Computed example of a mutant assay.
Amino acid sequence: MIRIICLTEVGLQLARRLQHLLSETDTKSEVCFKPTPFIDSVQTYFKQQDSLVFICATGIVMRTLAPVIKDKYTDPAVLVLDEQGQFVIPLLSGHEGGANEFARQVSNLLENQLVITTANRYLNPIYVVGMGCERHCPEAVLQGLLDECLTTAGLTINDISAITSIDIKSDEVGLIALSKNLHKPYVTFDAETLGAMEERLSTKSDYIFKTVGVYGVAESAALYQAQQLTKNGSELLLNKQKNKQATCAIARSYSLS
């Protein structure tokens, strides 16, 4: 049994969302909102080998479970989520108990950031550039904006995995030439696909939405490709920057090696 334990109304909303997403993968779970008595209830779940997902501070979890923790070979998987659902941490039984893989599943469902701290697993950052531009924007203008963004983010072009945009820019000569000369894949996505990133944009442009069907091309494309490359959540490392003819953003995700 997977038990999703939460203590606040905000946490309850996230718990119900996660429960719904798990149900779509045929995974059964139960939401436990303010279980009473808290310590006894949680320790009982743990002892009966339930996988536990806490939506609260890690300190609360550790103080509650400390008396019943035995070893990584017999303890069940324990994950911790923040109330905003931005991060998931496999807290106990990462390898042997399957918490790392369970956390990866939860991270994929919530499209958030997976944070693994166990030994022998390393998080490697993956960076993706997203760009938008006016039709027939010169390559030199795109290159100049990209250079500025890389400098601001503390990166070089060697750190970048791909340059991305929306599919109506799949034939944009400047973007194609830029990617080719930098020896980077140029990847585009349709508006429906990029629309899934809407709630994670730093800003939303009604004008861009009316024009191409998404509220932001550069950020959406970078965020989507970053998570596609790692199968983990993604985040904006550099919010949309722009000049008179183009926009650029950089997203980051992490892969396990």
Score class of each variant (00 low, 15 high):
L110N: 05
L110A: 04
L109M: 09
A140L: 06
N112I: 07
R63C: 02
K70T: 13
S107N: 15
G130P: 12
G85N: 01
T117Y: 11
H136A: 06
A140Y: 08
G98Y: 13
L109K: 09
K70N: 06
C137Y: 01
I126M: 04
R121I: 14
L91Q: 02
I116D: 01
L114M: 09
K72H: 06
V68Y: 10
Q86A: 05
K70Y: 00
G132Q: 07
A140N: 09
P138D: 00
Y127W: 08
M131P: 03
T64V: 14
T74P: 03
V115E: 08
I69V: 15
L123W: 00
H95F: 10
I89D: 01
G94Y: 06
S93V: 11
N120H: 10
E101L: 12
A77M: 03
V106T: 05
S107Y: 04
L123E: 10
L114R: 08
G85A: 04
L79F: 11
K72D: 09
L79C: 08
S93K: 01
F102V: 10
L91V: 15
H136L: 02
L79G: 01
V129Y: 09
D75E: 08
Q86T: 12
E96Y: 14
D82Y: 02
L92T: 04
D82W: 00
V141H: 09
D82V: 05
M62R: 06
G130V: 09
E139L: 02
F102M: 14
A140K: 15
V68G: 04
P138K: 05
M62F: 04
G98L: 14
R135E: 07
A119G: 08
R135S: 02
C133T: 07
E139K: 15
L91Y: 03
V128D: 00
R104G: 03
D82E: 05
N112T: 04
N100K: 10
C137M: 04
V88T: 14
D75W: 13
A119W: 02
P67F: 00
V80N: 06
G94L: 12
T118Q: 08
Q86C: 05
L123T: 11
R121H: 06
D71F: 03
S107L: 03
G85T: 01
N124L: 10
H95V: 08
N112M: 09
V88N: 09
E101T: 14
F87L: 11
P90Y: 11
E111T: 07
G132C: 09
D82H: 02
M62Y: 13
P67V: 07
R135W: 02
I60E: 08
V141K: 15
T117N: 12
A66R: 03
V141R: 13
A119V: 11
G132I: 14
I116P: 01
L109H: 11
D75G: 06
V61A: 13
V80E: 02
